[in-house]
């Protein structure tokens, strides 16, 4: 973990953190007062600072959120005006700042278990909470691997020389997709071998 937010954040139940984040994401869009938005955007910074963390570690935690907020501000500034751009950027920064605190202070399994419980209310509408939670875990786990596969294929192409072209990019994409399909079959077997479908059978 790159940074360590205050202890009370660790101790809060993941379901409370998720519910608060969910509520905040709604509330933010109803707040137009730039002072209140600035206060909410500053809240994650204040939380980290009050806990005595260095500016460096604070920067590492919130840097990605700051960059995204800045990009949004610039886009909005040219598209609309300064106040609208400021509001949009502050909303995004506040949301990402709190989200960073939630993910940094909660184990993935606890977060996914809380999400699974929350999604159970949608089960009567056909949503399968356990599968959805597993899908999210798999996304977190395999996203870096899919990126690695992309880089490996591209490196293999480059090693064989030749100029960049649209055909080469098309080949890269098709090879990448074919590797992903094979990978998906292997992962499905691994999940099955570790008893996931057995649990589903017991559920049904």
């Amino acid at each position: 973990m790159l940074c360590r937010p205050p202890a009370f954040f660790f101790n809060l139940a993941p379901s409370i953190k998720l519910a608060a984040l969910f509520a905040l994401s709604f509330i933010l869009f109803f707040i137009d007062n730039i002072v209140i938005l600035a206060g909410l955007a500053a809240a994650p910074i204040i939380i980290y600072r009050l806990a005595g963390f260095s500016v460096g570690s604070l920067g590492r935690c919130l840097f990605p959120a700051a960059i995204l907020a800045l990009l949004l501000f610039l886009f909005q500034f040219f598209a609309t005006d300064f106040a609208a751009a400021g509001r949009a950027a502050l909303r995004l920064f506040a949301l990402l700042g709190f989200a960073a605190a939630v993910t940094a202070t909660t184990a993935n399994s606890a977060l996914l278990a809380a999400l699974e419980r929350a999604l159970r209310v949608l089960a009567p509408f056909g949503l399968k909470p356990r599968q959805t939670a597993l899908a999210l875990a798999l996304t977190l786990r395999f996203m870096p691997l899919t990126r690695q596969i992309w880089h490996d294929i591209r490196a293999a192409q480059q090693a064989r020389g030749g100029a960049q072209s649209l055909a080469r990019l098309g080949l890269l994409i098709s090879l990448w997709l074919s590797r992903l399909v094979t990978m998906q079959e292997d992962i499905a077997q691994a999940i099955e071998a570790r008893g996931f479908d057995d649990e589903e059978r017991e559920d049904s």
Binding site: N108, A137, R141, A193, G195, D198
Partner: peptide, 30 residues
């Protein structure tokens, strides 16, 4: 399945959860 454990050739495909402890716990959660 509870009696027979299976270790695949490529561990990258067998490791399902994002972190080490979570992945070891996966079967017990099931």
């Amino acid at each position: 399945r509870r009696k027979v454990g299976f270790v695949f050739q490529n561990p990258d495909m067998q490791i399902i959860q994002p972190t080490v402890a979570e992945d070891i716990a996966f079967g017990l959660h099931n």
